[in-house]
Design a protein around this nucleic acid. Sequence first.
DNA 1: GCCTCATGGCTATGAAGGTTAGCCATAGCT
DNA 2: AGCTATGGCTAACCTTCATAGCCATGAGGC
Lengths: 185, 185
Amino acid sequence: MPRAGLSTAAVVDAALDLVDERGLDALTLAAVAERTGVAAPSLYKHVGGLAQLRTLMAVRIMEELTERFTAALVGRGGADAVATLMRTYRRYAIEHPARHAAIPPDPLHDPALASAGARLLEVFLAVLRGYGLEGAAAIHTTRCLRAIVHGFASIEAAGGFGLPEDLDTTHEQLVRMFIASLPRT
Amino acid sequence: MPRAGLSTAAVVDAALDLVDERGLDALTLAAVAERTGVAAPSLYKHVGGLAQLRTLMAVRIMEELTERFTAALVGRGGADAVATLMRTYRRYAIEHPARHAAIPPDPLHDPALASAGARLLEVFLAVLRGYGLEGAAAIHTTRCLRAIVHGFASIEAAGGFGLPEDLDTTHEQLVRMFIASLPRT
DNA sequence: GCCTCATGGCTATGAAGGTTAGCCATAGCT
DNA sequence: AGCTATGGCTAACCTTCATAGCCATGAGGC
C-alpha cells in the first residue's frame, strides 16, 4: 500500500485541473479522488469536504486573479489602467470559464475568503484612486465596475451572447462607457 | 389511494414556491414531492426529471419578467424607458432572488427556452429602438445593458455588496452611466 | 538497527438524491 | 357496467458526500 504523497495543495491543484477540463459541475470528490489516484474518503485527510475544497479553490482563484491584475497594471494609470483591468478580467474569464464561475459572489461573508477578497477589491479601489475617487464615491464606482465586468464575463463565459456580432466590439463599447462615466482628471 | 390531482403546471408552481422560500439549492425532487403531497417518483408522470423541471421554471420566470417589463414600460420612451427597465429588473431580482438566479445565462441555446428568451430580448431591443438604435449597434448596446443589469442584480441578490454604502445610490449611478452612453436623441 | 506512533492510505457503511421498472387503483368514457 | 388510460405507489439501483474504524507506512528517537 504505497502512499500517494498527497497534500492539501495537490488536492486543490487536481480540482482546478478538473474544472478546467470538465466544467464546474464536474467537481465531485469521486472525480478528484480518481485524478489523484486515491479513494474518495482519503481526500478527507487533506480537505474538510467538498464545501471546503470549493472555498480553497476560490481562494486560489482570487489570488491568481489579483496577481494577474497587478502584473498587468504596473506602470499604468488613469483610463489606461481602467481599460487594462477590464480587459484582463475578461481575458481570464475566457481562458478559465470554470474558474471564473467558481468565484463566490460574496467573498467577504466567509472568513476563509475575506482576505483574498479584500485584496482583490483593493486592486479595483487602487485603480480608481488614481482617478481621484475616494471614500463613498470610490465604493459606488467600484461596485459599478464590478457589476459590469462580472456581468459581461459571466454571460460570455456561459456562452450566453448567442448572436454572431463581434464580442470584442461589445466589450470595447463597455470599456468606453465606463471610462466616460468617470470624473475628468 | 386518492389522487392528488397534480399537473405539470402545479409541479412547477410548487417548485417556484419552494425556491422562493428556501433558495435555489433547495430545489430537489424530494422536496417538491413532499410539498405536492406525492411520492418523488410520481413527479415523473408530470415532469421529465429535475433538468426539465428547471427549464420549465426558467420559462415561467422569463415570461413573468417579460410581463413585468411590458407592464412597467407602457407609455414610456427614451431615457425614462431605459431607467424603468433597469429598475424593474433590479426590483424583480430583489423580490425573487432565487428566481433571478434560476434564469439561464444562455436561453437561446436550449430550444425549450429559446422563444421565451427571444421575447425577453425583444423588450430590451424595443427600448433601445426608441433611441434610434438598430441592427448591430442595437445588439452591442443591448449586450452592454444586459451585462450591467445582470451583473448588478446577481451580486446584489447574492448579498455580494458587503460594504454599508447605500445600494440605491449605486444603482442610480449605473442607470445614469448607461443612459449617458446612449446617442443623443 | 529497532520501536513507536502519528500519518495517510484503505474498506465498509449509511444517508440523500435522481431515476427506472413495474404494479395497481381510480376515474372517465363508452 | 366494464375498459382503459392515467396517475398514483413501492421497490430497487446508482451516484455522491460523509463517517467510522482498520492498518501499513515511514520518520524520529533510542
